[in-house]
Design a protein around this nucleic acid. Structure first.
Lengths: 331, 331
DNA sequence: ATGAAAGCGCTAACAA
DNA sequence: TTGTTAGCGCTTTCAT
């Protein structure tokens, strides 16, 4: 059934040794031009494709990266993946993509799968419930670079690339402060996550530093529905907020539903600003103003870091892509 | 640097042959329980992980599927991918994900990459510009099942799984017709794509069959912005449409912007209905009513078909997931 | 119950 | 310029 062309088959037809075929195909200088040509022609005709498994086995060089995310279909990761995949293709690598589903057991199984496939390096966004990052650190120490991205462990000595949480939160806060708002509803996510803590701290700090002090109401929502409910309640108050800040796309999507439901005019009656990857904010009219945390850019950065590690850079560091304010018209 | 545990290393330490180790680890009946236990213990301690490449080389069974899409970060594909990846994990397979970027050259390169990796089977959504599907058909004939999904070639004798385009369009049309609307603006995509043709044909056919005949305005938009402009123009007319149909998520996202801009009340002043994967419609208030074409369900179906092919089912067919109407409140 | 040996497809050092 | 050989890690047939 499955008949594939191998060097051996070509060599038998051409009455040459396997190594000659191998060399001819890699344009080795010691092979005569005539032989090369004959080999190339037949190889093309027989649709020869080298066996990546055999090459890996022989050379111990796999040309495959692993990528472990909670889910591929989630606001941010898809653009991260797109960026990494682009770079992989550009650099002759393949990508083994695995979803943890936010389950630490699956995560560890997937890690094993990566090891089985003898991947060259691993990009990983750990789940919020991952307690033990040692298996990842071990892999890194044993010579397979591990780049943590987005949700990274607090452990110092590892490669981390993150969105500029502090920057993005500060930019958002300052954008609000510059507009002389009276009352701000700030919606944050799960308070156990470091990303929430960082954004919250930077956001409140900016408010405290400022001279003008709008009233600030801080709430936490675990998902879009909760964000929607909280927004709905607040917009129903007699002194409703004139500005809503959402720390993530998920929260923004919930909050926007409540805003649309309220019938209030954006930005005349209520302003909106978010931290986002950019896709969700552009779905509304007016487009939502946001501090960008680009998954795509982060993916490019992660790849660059990976290549540096492979070239021997052992300098371990925390890198981040800077955030910029993208004006939409909602503030 | 990269030190990995192999059967050989274990065998040397235990003073046993490699084959004994191999057998012990697979719980072969002819190995004594004591030996098995010793081997298992050491293997665990040394973190032995079998080399997938060596196994593939030896057994000619790779346990890797290829997945080729235009882009991972696009409305529909991410959920398809999520479904396929879930099933892969459940069944002990890995997934090699590749993006064509809608470029046929990249597509062909990626196909080669899949062959290099000796994948077990391939899921592929061809680009709109793919003229020659022969390389895929050849792969299929040579024993590696190829499942086309979503954008499938018109060629008959191959495995295809699709969303129920005709169903979804008919369901949408009938939902509109049952509401006694007066004037419908129907927005379709690129008219060169078979998906557009199918949906358009089924949609108009349903209208023609019906007794009540609302005025029907059909437009084509190549992207979200164009959909937005067309919607904007139509809503500015003196006799504006009371209903807008969008054949895809991309078109819906553009159209919704214009609707929000108009300030018209949904569904009181203007109704909306779309064909969608479900994510975008749920971002608005009220949620948009849509005929579901689920990427996730399609992924599950594609995987089932793949497994059937691997079990020897050579019965080649076109499968599709049925569409259902999901009521949002916008109609 | 265990071992020896061949071989999957490929590369590379060494020979000729 | 080309061929021979060994070996990457593993499975499996055939001994013992």
């Amino acid at each position: 059934m499955k008949e594939v062309t191998t060097l051996k088959k070509i060599s038998e037809i051409l009455n040459l040794s396997i190594s000659t075929i191998s060399r001819a195909l890699k344009d080795h200088p010691e092979i005569s031009e005539t032989t090369k040509e004959r080999v190339r022609q037949l190889a093309t005709k027989m649709e020869y494709v080298p066996d990546a498994n055999a090459i890996q086995l022989r050379t111990n060089n796999s040309k495959i990266f692993g990528l472990l995310v909670p889910s591929v279909s989630y606001y941010f990761y898809d653009s991260f993946i797109a960026a990494v995949e682009e770079e992989c293709t550009k650099n002759g690598y393949s990508l083994l993509i695995l979803q943890s589903g936010d389950d630490p057991t699956t995560e560890i199984n997937h890690l094993k799968l990566c090891r089985q496939n003898r991947i060259t390096g691993l990009f990983v966004c750990i789940t919020p419930h991952t307690k033990d990052v040692n298996p990842f650190l071990k892999l890194n120490e044993s010579g397979t670079p591990v780049i943590f991205f987005d949700k990274v462990p607090s452990y110092e000595a590892c490669n981390k690339v993150c969105t500029a949480d502090v920057d993005a939160a500060r930019i958002s806060a300052n954008a609000i402060l510059s507009k002389k708002k009276k009352k701000v509803l700030a919606l944050f996510g799960n308070n156990h996550l470091s990303i929430t803590k960082k954004r919250l701290a930077a956001f409140t700090e900016a408010f405290e530093k400022s001279k003008s002090k709008p009233k600030l109401v801080i709430c936490h929502a675990l998902d879009a529905d909760e964000a929607r409910n909280i927004t709905h309640e607040n917009l129903s108050l007699k002194n409703r907020p004139d500005t809503i800040f959402c720390m993530s796309d998920e929260i923004l999507s919930g909050s926007m539903k409540a805003i649309q439901q309220s019938g209030l005019k954006v930005p005349e009656e209520v302003s909106v600003i978010a931290i986002s990857n950019g896709f969700i904010p552009k779905l509304y009219y007016p487009e939502v103003t946001y501090a960008e945390t680009s998954g795509y850019k982060l993916g490019k950065l992660a790849f660059t870091r990976m290549m540096a590690c492979l070239s021997g850079s052992t300098f371990i560091q925390m890198l981040s892509v800077e955030s910029v304010l993208v004006e939409g018209g909602s503030l």
